[in-house]
Design a protein around this nucleic acid. Structure first.
Lengths: 231, 231
DNA sequence: ACAAAAGTGTTGCACGTACACCCATGT
DNA sequence: ACATGGGTGTACGTGCAACACTTTTGT
């Protein structure tokens, strides 16, 4: 099939806002750029979309190349298209986000040398970022803040087994406010998507808390109900 | 500043899903294409983004050129980037939506001859559309359906003065379900964003209904409250 | 024994939902 | 007078918010 479209020196890119939770802190994944422009600056993992790849696949590939992370389910949340957002020409970027579980020391190894390293950085302690990446991050943060308040998606960020207090801390970090312990527990347990385990927390110097697991089957049911209109 | 970005024969476009409400029916704005590919097909108003124009401005320009409509506030809702969505090459499109008031006979006159005409078509009676525009429409419809259920935005579609029944009908059309009259009225009046007028409906052969106006000041306050987290 | 966090119930309020009849007006 | 939609109230259930003390465990 012949291409008869006009040609512009414009390109599409992808940028990824990947959230993780570790050590009581909400973090995002940043790379240190190894190329101009903004060489040696911190930036969101992002790169140019290949012309034979759908944007969703491009997002996966780019994240993998820059951080070594695979099989991360990302969702598009906004497209940024100001004319001068990239100093070298017109670049429209589609921003994706994901929330992932940091299984202890998940290794971050850039495959491409477009990034010199990839690191988890606490969202409350972000450095200056390249391009308009601060704006993109901020909108991505809004997105999860909004989403978490009507869908119990926080489990994606926690280890497989977690205590209710950990879950609550995560909510508090994302929503930036204190929550009432009793109400929080009541609500979460009422959803019916937590499985109480026979296990307890270990290695703490105070009363050990019960561990819970997230019940995917029940979650799917609840989620479906929420998508459907009642009555 | 020199452009040193790679060159691809990829282009960006904008597509607009513009909702209107008229005659008890929810409609969207379609154009009849006057160019290949899909010449003489119905399509969403859409075209290519100029490389010196932000995507938001491009959306306004494109809508104006194809339909003659000006000063419509549109919001981006999704970007579609499958490789083969356009038969002539790689085109990634950013989709926008808007809800507008049809002031009686607002004229639709394509400025560019890329469209031979622009017409309001009921969403329940859509023809086959060019490209993947049916998918884009459907996602745009999801968007307003979702939005209306947590924000009272339906006023944007109604005439300045309207009856509660008209408002209810609009909700029913968008949500595709019947609503209870008493509950609906109670809820809407409780929001406190409707101003009751001293005027009544005219020209009906039954008891005339009170007319209401939408109170923008109070709406802004309510909206702000909803955006902020309580307590 | 003490420090530190785990765990637990009740009450009031706001809001959604279900439900049916009389009223005003034009023809 | 009749047809057509306009307009109205109550009772129940659910879910959220506010609020403080006892229990368990490791050191």
């Amino acid at each position: 099939m012949e291409t008869i479209l006009p040609k512009f020196d414009s390109v599409f890119s992808i940028d990824c806002v990947i959230f993780g939770f570790d050590d009581g802190e909400l973090k995002i994944l940043l790379i240190k750029r190894n190329e101009e422009p903004f060489k040696d600056w911190w930036a969101l993992p992002g790169n140019i979309i290949q012309h034979d790849q759908s944007i969703d696949l491009a997002a996966e590939r780019i994240l993998y190349e820059l951080t070594g992370l695979k099989d991360i389910f990302m969702e598009q949340f906004h497209t940024f298209g100001d004319v001068n957002r990239h100093p070298q020409g017109r670049v429209i970027t589609v921003a994706y986000y994901a929330m992932i579980r940091l299984n202890g020391t998940k290794e971050l190894k850039p495959i491409s040398n477009y990034a010199s390293k990839a690191v988890w950085i606490p969202v409350n302690d972000l450095p200056k970022l390249a391009f308009d990446h601060e704006k993109i991050f901020s909108r991505g943060f809004d997105k999860i803040r909004n989403k978490i308040s009507y869908q119990p998606i926080a489990f994606e960020l926690l280890p497989e087994k977690f205590t209710l207090t950990q879950l609550q801390q995560l909510y508090e970090v994302i929503l930036s406010k204190k929550l009432d312990k009793r109400n929080f527990r009541k609500k979460m347990l009422n959803y019916g998507i937590l499985k109480e385990l026979d296990e307890k927390q270990k290695g703490v110097s105070y009363r050990a808390a019960k561990l819970y697991k997230f019940d995917k089957r029940k979650y799917a049911k609840l989620f479906q109900k929420e998508l459907t209109f009642s009555s």
